[in-house]
Simulated assay, not measured.
Amino acid sequence: MQDQDVYNLRYPIGDFAYGSVFTSEQTKGHVSTIAGMPVKLTELVGTWSDDRLDTPYRPDCWTVRQVVHHVVDSHMNAYVRVKLALTENNPTISPYEEGEWAKLPDYALDITPSLVILKNLHLRWVAVLESLTDDQLKRTYFHPGSQRLFPLSEVIGMYAWHGEHHYQHVYQLAVRNGWL
């Protein structure tokens, strides 16, 4: 496989541009993307068989099942990080080893509970995100792995990208395999 093909499988919508500054209008669009993600993902994979769910989205990588569970874990962490940034002064967040989490037994479970969690988590998260003022969008948390502060406007953009990034992993797999 050529380098560009591997890149496109890994980053079907391109890399996230860290350090980007987003306008209020762009942030509203990002929040809308976050709000719609659970329904979009559920409509795509909610009725898939175990054979499809246990298919890696690219060679030597996570299965669809693992991707679904990862999105939930990642977005739960993001929700907590947003709330920490809103209630503490530049809190240091706790990073996690997502690759190691994907090896834990809950990643082999049916995806239905994760899709339910995702729907309800995003309901709560979006309620918080839609209420943010321009000043609150400037609030930050410190990520010790990146050694930098992340303003909430960037975090919102990053997680809108993150959800679509993983959705496209699964969607493109479905296209390649004729599952749509």
Results as ranks from 00 to 15, higher is better:
residue 141 Y to E: 06
residue 116 V to R: 14
residue 144 P to H: 02
residue 115 L to R: 01
residue 22 F to T: 07
residue 76 M to L: 14
residue 51 D to Y: 07
residue 54 D to T: 13
residue 124 R to W: 03
residue 145 G to E: 13
residue 83 K to Y: 02
residue 92 T to W: 04
residue 162 H to E: 05
residue 106 D to W: 11
residue 54 D to K: 09
residue 168 Q to Y: 02
residue 146 S to P: 05
residue 93 I to L: 07
residue 56 P to H: 06
residue 109 L to F: 02
residue 85 A to H: 00
residue 150 F to H: 05
residue 107 Y to N: 14
residue 16 F to D: 05
residue 155 V to R: 00
residue 51 D to F: 01
residue 79 Y to R: 07
residue 99 G to A: 11
residue 111 I to M: 05
residue 62 W to Y: 10
residue 32 S to L: 15
residue 149 L to Y: 06
residue 155 V to S: 01
residue 147 Q to V: 01
residue 40 K to Q: 13
residue 22 F to H: 10
residue 143 H to I: 00
residue 127 A to R: 11
residue 17 A to K: 14
residue 100 E to D: 15
residue 158 M to R: 09
residue 116 V to E: 15
residue 112 T to I: 12
residue 5 D to S: 12
residue 22 F to I: 05
residue 14 G to N: 10
residue 33 T to R: 12
residue 84 L to D: 06
residue 77 N to T: 11
residue 48 W to V: 01
residue 174 A to V: 00
residue 129 L to A: 06
residue 40 K to L: 09
residue 18 Y to G: 04
residue 101 W to Y: 14
residue 23 T to Q: 06
residue 149 L to C: 10
residue 17 A to H: 07
residue 175 V to W: 01
residue 157 G to N: 05
residue 97 E to Q: 12
residue 41 L to Y: 00
residue 138 K to A: 14
residue 79 Y to M: 13
residue 160 A to F: 00
residue 100 E to K: 15
residue 20 S to F: 00
residue 69 H to W: 12
residue 83 K to N: 13
residue 47 T to H: 12
residue 178 G to S: 07
residue 65 R to V: 09
residue 39 V to I: 12
residue 141 Y to G: 00
residue 150 F to R: 00
residue 73 D to Y: 03
residue 130 E to Y: 02
residue 97 E to N: 15
residue 35 A to F: 06
residue 159 Y to A: 02
residue 179 W to S: 00
residue 161 W to G: 06
residue 153 S to W: 08
residue 146 S to A: 15
residue 36 G to P: 01
residue 129 L to K: 08
residue 160 A to Y: 01
residue 9 L to P: 08
residue 141 Y to P: 04
residue 42 T to F: 04
residue 66 Q to T: 07
residue 129 L to M: 06
residue 149 L to F: 09
residue 22 F to E: 10
residue 36 G to C: 05
residue 135 D to V: 09
residue 162 H to A: 08
residue 175 V to S: 07
residue 72 V to H: 01
residue 131 S to F: 01
residue 85 A to C: 09
residue 78 A to M: 06
residue 122 H to V: 13
